[in-house]
Design a binder for these strands. Structure first.
Lengths: 173, 173
DNA sequence: TCTCTCACTATGGAAAGCCTAAGTCATCCG
DNA sequence: CGGATGACTTAGGCTTTCCATAGTGAGAGA
């Protein structure tokens, strides 16, 4: 039973695991960009509907300097945009709104939430997500385009278009 | 067009966003546990088949002290186990193997990888994942149990079993 | 026994991430 | 004009996260 290795498979090009590096790994880049707690919390609040500075401060529990800094970064990196708006009898303000890039990060955020619900919340999940239209529960899953649900063992890894274009740290010849 | 808010909906119990806190958020817990770069890289290498200390060091590019520390943490937290093994004519060693908890973290890891592929890899993804059995591409998606693909806007949030059990930081009465 | 490798541990230091507390600045309200 | 408010910035400090370098200890092979 412990004979089947608990890992992905590789195509022949990648079979020698020491002959290529994962230095340009997209997950690594993603973690460097949005992997920190402050960014994740800010994104969560954006999904929960926050658009204003003080909402983000109040609802994430982060300090003002951190929120100011990280919101600026998220805007620079393209996950949020500032759009001006004006409430009645109030001066013009800026709202932080999700871009497509920020909206897409909903998937990893919910994936982490789901994993935390399963493994770190013995008393049950603090919040539950459902599909507004049909009411059934929300799950994040790894699937192929044919619709099969996949685990680590079902996946094969092969080099992509961006492979070793740069960062061919290893394999000199 | 910018009229539809780009966020989840809430059930009436959560409608006053300032009357409840997301302090016990599962995503926050998950990020605190596995959100750091070193942990994510170690998990990636575990999915790529690494089991030994020196493999993790070589393939993540992390330093030995960090790998030693983080592997210990991952074992304590239950994502990995150490199992003894012995190669022919070699002394007994310990291999780090994924537990169910660690295997489940494949979902957020691949979700981050996919997001990075889409938004941070203009030259194309460094590696591509496919379903070994049918060959079609791998995707991570947020769906309901009825099979509908969901975005932020399609999701409703309601309090779960673990809500305000503790951490009812707000709503004093 | 001597050396080698593997799997660590110890030490010291740079950088990042977060905090509190205290401004700043523009605008609106009275 | 004077105070309140919202959205920040500045200053200073603590803690975590990483790194590099240099050990240590245990078993295998010569």
């Amino acid at each position: 039973m412990s004979d089947t290795p608990d890992r992905v498979r590789f195509t022949t090009a990648l079979h020698d695991r020491d002959a290529w590096s994962a230095a340009a790994c997209s997950m690594d880049r993603a973690v460097k960009l949005i992997g920190k707690r402050s960014n994740m919390l800010l994104l969560r609040e954006a999904y929960y509907g926050s658009t204003r500075f003080d909402e983000f401060v109040r609802r994430t529990g982060l300090s003002e300097p951190v929120v100011a800094n990280e919101l600026r970064h998220l805007v620079e990196e393209g996950l949020l945009t500032r759009v001006p708006y004006q409430d009645a009898g109030d001066r013009e303000r800026l709202a932080y709104r999700l871009t497509d890039m920020g909206r897409d990060a909903f998937v990893p955020v919910v994936a982490l939430m789901q994993w935390g619900d399963k493994w770190l919340a013995p008393e049950g999940p603090p919040v539950e997500l459902s599909h507004s239209a049909c009411g059934s529960a929300v799950t994040v899953s790894v699937r192929c385009t044919e619709g099969h649900d996949l685990t680590v063992r079902d996946v094969t890894v092969r080099p992509g278009r961006g492979a070793t274009r740069r960062a061919s740290t290893t394999s000199p010849h």
